[in-house]
Design a protein around this nucleic acid. Structure first.
Lengths: 129, 129
DNA sequence: GTATTACTTAGAGTTGACTCCAAGTCAAGT
DNA sequence: ACTTGACTTGGAGTCAACTCTAAGTAATAC
């Protein structure tokens, strides 16, 4: 799979895909003899994983660390798990904060609705006079 | 209330507070004769609101727009409500995406736990031999 | 009366995460 | 043979959101 196909498949620009690889967010992508990237299913899996994690707000830095540990093999299992747990906890907290803000926005919108209705009533009354 | 007190109260740097005011994220703050900021309860309320919204990921730009509409008074009620609804919807989507990623992270962590246990068993067996 | 401390401003610098650009290679089509 | 188009690289540029700096003022402590 070429880089532009992968770009189309996951909705990431080719620049972003190259940047992710260069930054070490995904392991080095498989190449053809001439040096052109030829994404395997595994490569695509990494792209999808990184897209998902970035979408949830995990930083480039932490994902780079994860891949670096992954590249060191089995003896980093515990470290990788610890990293994931830390990020999971942070994500959970952010979600909870966002849920509170969502509730607050909903309440605010309700208040606006009431105020708008009240305004319209006033205008109607004015119109009748 | 001075800017550094407000900074302490809400955990925002004084630079950030001045930046928010300059950028129009909060209405102009009350001043003493000598030009020094003297935050009223209302000013603090705005700071808290902006902190909350920024914490949930609403952009500087959209919050600036909201304040600009607010400053124009009652005739912008509907526009303000529309803006809030749009941001609410975006927030909701982001939360849903993050919840899916949270679930995925939890599953991944479970898999790591199992692999780590399996590894330890192997090591123990090796030790017995 | 001077040193310290907290404030003021305009504007420059930093960080994270891309995004774009120039210059070059290579295979395919006419 | 030559153009076209997709790829390659290193490195520069951009954007949002701060964060810092320099130069200055004004009240308070010694």
């Amino acid at each position: 799979m070429t880089i532009s196909e992968v770009s189309g498949k996951y909705g990431l620009s080719v620049d972003t895909l190259r940047y992710y690889e260069k930054a070490g967010l995904i392991p080095p992508v498989n190449r053809k003899e001439n040096g052109i990237r030829d994404y395997t299913e595994t490569d695509c899996g990494w792209v999808e994983f990184v897209k998902c994690m970035r979408g949830a707000g995990l930083s480039i830095e932490v994902l780079t660390q994860y891949i670096a540990l992954y590249a060191k093999g089995n003896r980093t299992l515990q470290k990788r798990k610890n990293l994931l747990v830390a990020e999971r906890d942070r994500l959970k907290e952010r979600i909870e904060q966002m849920q509170q803000t969502l509730k607050r926005l909903n309440d605010k919108i309700d208040v606006y609705e009431q105020r708008i209705v009240a305004c319209e009533k006033k205008l109607l009354k004015g119109g009748v006079q």
